[in-house]
């Protein structure tokens, strides 16, 4: 199964563990900043699986997988920046950076009554 422990064999397992760790954080933590960090860590795990598989064997690494990962990193950082902007906006509207169940309540202007 595992012939030798070259990086291409070792790192994908670490990537899977990172993905699981990030998923766990995403489920368990409620503060939006921590959730954004959790999604980023999940993404890093996916990139690690990708790059690890690309680096397997003795041949030079697969450039297509690396290019896809690069694209993924760009998209991840843009999404992270946008998510942080949304978090700040949410905090400005509601006064906290946590997603709560129920309709969104703003703390200035006409706040809908609690059901």
């Amino acid at each position: 199964m595992i012939e030798s422990l070259d990086p291409g064999t070792l790192y994908p397992f670490g990537g899977a563990a990172l993905f699981a760790l990030g998923l766990h954080g995403l489920i368990r933590r409620r503060h939006l900043i921590l959730r954004i960090l959790a999604v980023n860590i999940m993404g890093s795990g996916v990139f690690m699986v990708f790059l690890g598989i690309a680096a397997r064997g003795d041949a030079p690494p697969d450039p297509v997988a690396q290019a896809l990962t690069l694209t993924g990193i760009v998209v991840a950082v843009s999404a992270t920046a946008f998510a942080l902007a949304l978090t700040v906006h949410l905090a400005r509207l509601t006064g906290h950076a946590v997603l709560l169940p129920g309709p969104l309540r703003t703390h200035r202007g006409n706040r809908p009554e609690d059901p």
Partner: peptide
């Protein structure tokens, strides 16, 4: 954890070709 184990099992059994290099 279950998802991680599933991923690892897939990685361990998958054989690798030369890829697109």
């Amino acid at each position: 954890g279950g998802l991680a184990l599933l991923l690892m099992a897939t990685l361990a059994t998958q054989d690798h070709g030369p890829g697109l290099q």
